[in-house]
Simulated assay, not measured.
Amino acid sequence: MESLRSDVAACAGSARTGRPRATSRAVLERLGFELFAEQGFDGTTVDDIADVAGIGRRTFFRYFASKNDLVWGDFEAQLARLDALLAAAAPDTPMMDALREAVVEFNRFDPAVVPWHRQRMALILRVPTLQADSAVRYASWRALVTDFAARRLGRPASDMLPRLIGSTVLAACVAAYEQWLTDEDADLSALLDLAIRQLATGYGDLGLRA
């Protein structure tokens, strides 16, 4: 964390010499995560993050609507990416295969990003004060899968079957992430692939292994 804080301090020093402070969503995100690791999510305030970044509260809120929003990062952009992956699925690919391939690709990260993503998901899945916010975000994610299933099935998204597919695929992904967080050697892509394959079989083949 010291190297990142030093970089931010250098930017703050530049501001004092007449140049504007340089920051970004990514810098604030990393600083926030590191403070959460040191002080806990509930023990860290927006003011704490702003102080370390050398900015004011008002500037922080230009990047993120809240501390919770910082944890999720650019969620709207990520939703758009998942939507694009689903839209790009070949029409002749079976629905559950298309969903599995899109979800696995959506959750593929550069190795350098994985430690940060692991911390992000640990916060999202384990911090009680984030759960209400998480439910709203999950609903948006689930709606994309539900709509995709509805299109493939030729049914309204309000029908039970597309809703069931959206909800169970989300549950499978959450289960895969929970397993990943308990095992640092686990491969996230393999766990997600396995979870959705198992779901697609209706648990008829319990011999599947990661």
Rank of each mutant, 00 (worst) to 15 (best):
V127G: 05
A135W: 00
L130W: 03
D185G: 15
T44I: 04
T201A: 10
R151W: 06
A200Y: 03
A132C: 04
D48L: 01
Q39W: 03
V46I: 08
D51T: 07
R16H: 12
S66D: 03
Q119I: 04
M96D: 12
D42T: 07
T146Y: 02
E105D: 07
L208Q: 15
F36E: 01
R5Q: 08
V174N: 14
M96T: 07
A50T: 04
G207W: 01
A87D: 14
F41V: 02
G204F: 05
C11Y: 05
L192D: 12
A10S: 13
G154D: 00
R163S: 14
Y63L: 09
V8L: 14
A200E: 09
F60A: 07
G13L: 10
A149Y: 07
I55N: 11
D187A: 12
A135G: 02
V46K: 02
A157V: 09
L79S: 05
V145G: 07
T168C: 10
A132E: 13
R118F: 04
T182F: 02
A26G: 11
V27K: 09
G32P: 04
Q119V: 02
A9S: 15
D193I: 00
C11M: 08
D110V: 02
P162T: 14
R155N: 12
P128F: 00
D110R: 00
A176N: 08
D7H: 01
Q39S: 10
I55D: 13
D110W: 00
G56L: 03
F75E: 07
S6E: 13
T146F: 03
T146P: 06
D42R: 12
D193Q: 05
T23S: 15
R209K: 13
E76G: 14
F60Y: 12
E178W: 08
A9W: 05
G202V: 08
K67N: 12
D110G: 02
L188P: 04
R118E: 09
L123D: 06
N107T: 01
T44S: 06
D7R: 08
E178C: 10
A210V: 12
T168R: 10
A175D: 13
N107Q: 10
T23C: 10
V174K: 10
F61G: 11
R126F: 00
V169R: 03
T23L: 03
L99S: 06
D69G: 06
R21A: 11
L161C: 09
A37K: 03
F64L: 07
T59V: 12
A90C: 10
A12T: 04
C173A: 08
L35A: 14
L70Q: 13
R118K: 10
H117W: 05
H117V: 08
G32C: 02
V103T: 14
A26Y: 09
F61K: 10
R137C: 00
A84I: 00
L208H: 09
H117N: 11
D97Q: 09
R142Q: 15
L70C: 12
T44L: 06
M96A: 08
V136N: 00
M96Y: 11
V114P: 07
R120Q: 15
A171I: 02
F61W: 10
L161M: 14
L144E: 03
Q198N: 11
Q78W: 04
S167V: 02
L191Y: 00
Q131S: 09
L123A: 05
R30I: 00
D110F: 07
T17F: 04
P20T: 12
M121T: 01
